[in-house]
Amino acid sequence: MYDPTRLAALVAVAEAGSITRAAERLGYSPPALSQQLAKLEREAGALLLVRSHRGARLTEAGELLVARARRVLDEMERARHELARLTGLSGGTLRLGTFQTAGIHLLPPVLSAFRRAHPDVELTVANYEPPDGVSAVAAGEVDLALTHTYEPADPAPLPSSVRAEPVLVEELVLVTAPGHVLADGAARLPLSALAGQPLISMAPDHPPRQGVEAALARVGATPAVRVESPGYALVCALVSAGLGVAVVPEMVARTAVTPVGLRLLEPGDLRRTISVVHRTDRQAPAAEAFRALLRGVFGRATR
């Protein structure tokens, strides 16, 4: 049986015309989406896509499977909608909290799928920079919140009334100005190679990043510009302008508005985990449905 998540990935590539654009739409990194498509090709026993520098096009087998996949996904959405009515999801409100990166790159496709499945549920979305979303859920201001943690870092204790469920883990990568010497090469760059490099730094005023900044300081990366607010778009813009290098989540690097070079780091133990936070003592049907949809789109995060 084909995995519905992989079928949805194939449909997204067919509609977007490239793996990169489809990955942006679905909230994956391009390598992660390519892995899902490769698994689907193994399941199908046939080549589904022809990849080129211009994008990706469907093979005859791919076109056949996409046509069937659309029918399967449509039926699944109808089933979700009908079940929602049976379980009380024919009205009410779902209050969501998110931080900026997730709100731009992760939430839209999930919200769109939720709206199609549960059109009668009123949605509200509020911005909470982590870890403020955790407090908002604990206080009952929102039903669910997307938040993040970084590694390495000292784990922050959660209130007893909430639980964090990981939905996506991504590496932190090096971003540089285009053509920078450190961006030249396909192999992972040792972290020690950042010694003496001017760093666009988000410390000391961004607690989730402090452990990462400390790791960079230990290898000798020198703060050149401090960005006190957690705005990755600004960080990438300063990097693109040649003011220094930065270490940011891979999703941020691959969706940067300004041109940057990208390089994976060695060891790959600098990470960001994105989680959905919910209350343990009560959970509305709409919130449970949204969490299930998140799991279906992104899968349970594993290292």
Rank of each mutant, 00 (worst) to 15 (best):
P190V: 06
V247D: 02
V11T: 11
P30F: 05
T149G: 13
L294V: 06
V173W: 00
P159E: 15
L73P: 10
L37M: 09
T93K: 14
E129S: 12
P4T: 12
L58K: 06
H180W: 05
E15V: 04
V72T: 15
P204Q: 10
F99H: 13
Q35I: 08
A16H: 08
T87W: 11
P109K: 05
D184S: 08
E24G: 10
T302M: 10
L49D: 10
R95F: 01
R21W: 02
D269P: 00
A289T: 09
L294Y: 05
E288A: 15
L37N: 03
G185L: 08
Y232A: 00
V134S: 01
L89E: 12
L194D: 00
N127F: 07
L7I: 12
Q35R: 12
L234K: 08
V121R: 02
L262Q: 06
L37G: 00
G220I: 07
G91A: 15
V162S: 14
H105N: 13
A69H: 10
A164I: 08
A113Q: 12
F290G: 00
V277D: 01
P157D: 15
A61Y: 07
L264R: 14
G55H: 06
A22Y: 08
G179D: 10
S275F: 01
A138R: 06
A84L: 10
R51L: 11
R254G: 09
V137R: 02
K39L: 13
R163D: 10
G55R: 07
V235P: 03
T302R: 14
D269E: 14
P131A: 07
T5G: 13
D281Y: 03
T222G: 00
C236W: 00
G62C: 12
T280M: 07
V219N: 08
L172H: 07
G179C: 07
A79I: 02
V13I: 11
E24M: 09
S34L: 03
P109W: 09
T280Y: 03
L123H: 04
R70W: 12
V297Y: 13
G97Q: 02
P131R: 08
L48I: 11
L189I: 04
G299D: 06
L111G: 05
A44D: 14
L86Y: 07
Y2L: 04
E228I: 02
V66I: 13
D184K: 03
S275Q: 11
G196N: 11
E24H: 15
H206I: 15
P267E: 09
G196Q: 13
A256W: 03
R272V: 14
V169N: 09
A102R: 05
D281M: 03
V181F: 05
L262T: 10
L216S: 03
V227W: 00
R68D: 13
R80N: 11
V219L: 08
C236Y: 02
G140E: 14
R71W: 08
L174R: 04
A287Y: 00
G179L: 05
Q35M: 10
G17I: 11
E129N: 11
V137S: 08
P178H: 02
V72G: 05
V162N: 13
G92I: 11
